[in-house]
């Protein structure tokens, strides 16, 4: 009897150790990634790297200024398209909790969320690149905005659902019209959640590369025209990483460092907002 209990306890110990070990191993990549990127990337970052354009092969130096500007432009473009749509759709879903239409839309949001980015890229290619016959920043922006949409809709809906019904009732009882109730009561009380959603979705698209390969395409030069190909940080990383030149590899490290810092900052910031500005009533 005693032996039996002993064996069980030993098994328990072994299992516990194994679980802890595996948990440790699965956290290891995060540290390794952050370590390597910081180690190799931070040395590359300097004034020249941040604020000058890429140089042709054979010339040393140069930077990723156009890629940074490109990424910022792509983010702005996709925000312009997806934020109004996403928030309005979220409001609609939270206002109409039941109903066939709401359920269908919810299903669509889930499917859209699961759609791989490359398929969304194909769509942007079909809608914009093929008719205009040129790669463009606009097509990249459209692809990214479709990717942002489900995240914004989902978080807006979830946030607004948490707002107590009596807030809305009180507003309506005072004779405030419905649209002003939404604008002045419901949206302000849910703003932190909505902001979190927007930041998370921006974080999601900042590092997205696959759809950009054949929509925004990449560009060696500075470009501000949204109907022309534009560079972006993830694309530049891809381009430099696949090249055989060691110097370009170091540029890829630098660009990765910027990109990772950017996405992690967005993620952390979003989490900070959702924790700190807990919706208060």
């Amino acid at each position: 009897m005693k032996d039996h209990a002993g064996a069980r306890l030993i098994k328990d110990m072994i299992f516990k150790c194994a679980v802890c070990l595996f948990a440790f191993i699965s956290l290891l990549p995060l540290y390794l990634i952050l370590y390597y990127i910081t180690k190799n990337g931070i040395m590359v970052i300097n004034w020249d790297f941040l604020f000058s354009l890429p140089r042709p092969i054979g010339e040393s130096g140069g930077g990723v200024f156009n890629a940074i500007i490109g990424t910022v432009m792509l983010i702005i473009l996709s925000c312009i398209m997806s934020i109004p749509c996403g928030i309005a759709a979220g409001i609609y879903l939270s206002e109409n909790k039941k109903g066939k239409l709401s359920n269908t839309i919810r299903l669509c949001v889930i499917v859209l969320q699961g759609t791989p980015s490359i398929v969304i890229g194909i769509i942007a290619y079909l809608w914009v690149v093929a008719p205009l016959k040129t790669f463009s920043a606009l097509s990249g922006g459209i692809a990214l905005s479709i990717m942002m949409l489900p995240v914004i809709i989902k978080t807006t809906e979830e946030t607004l659902k948490l707002i107590p019904y009596h807030l809305k009732e009180a507003s309506l009882a005072l004779g405030v019209p419905y649209h002003r109730t939404i604008l002045k009561v419901i949206l302000p009380s849910g703003i932190s959640g909505i902001l979190t959603g927007i930041l998370l979705s921006v974080a999601r698209i900042t590092g997205e590369t696959a759809p950009l390969l054949f929509t925004a395409f990449g560009n060696q030069f500075m470009n501000m025209n949204i109907l022309k190909p534009i560079d972006s940080l993830p694309y530049r990383i891809f381009y430099y990483a696949m090249s055989p030149y060691p110097e370009w590899h170091s540029f890829a490290w630098g660009a990765s460092f910027i990109l990772v810092v950017l996405t992690l900052a967005l993620n952390l910031f979003a989490r900070g907002i959702s924790v700190k500005w807990k919706i208060q009533f």
Partner: peptide, 24 residues
């Protein structure tokens, strides 16, 4: 501490994973 750290792992762009894969 661990839960947010894991969520950050999800936030790292795939091109960076690819780059690290190519190099290491």
């Amino acid at each position: 501490f661990l839960k947010p750290a894991l969520e950050l792992l999800a936030g790292i762009p795939s091109v960076v994973y690819g780059f690290l894969g190519v190099i290491y």
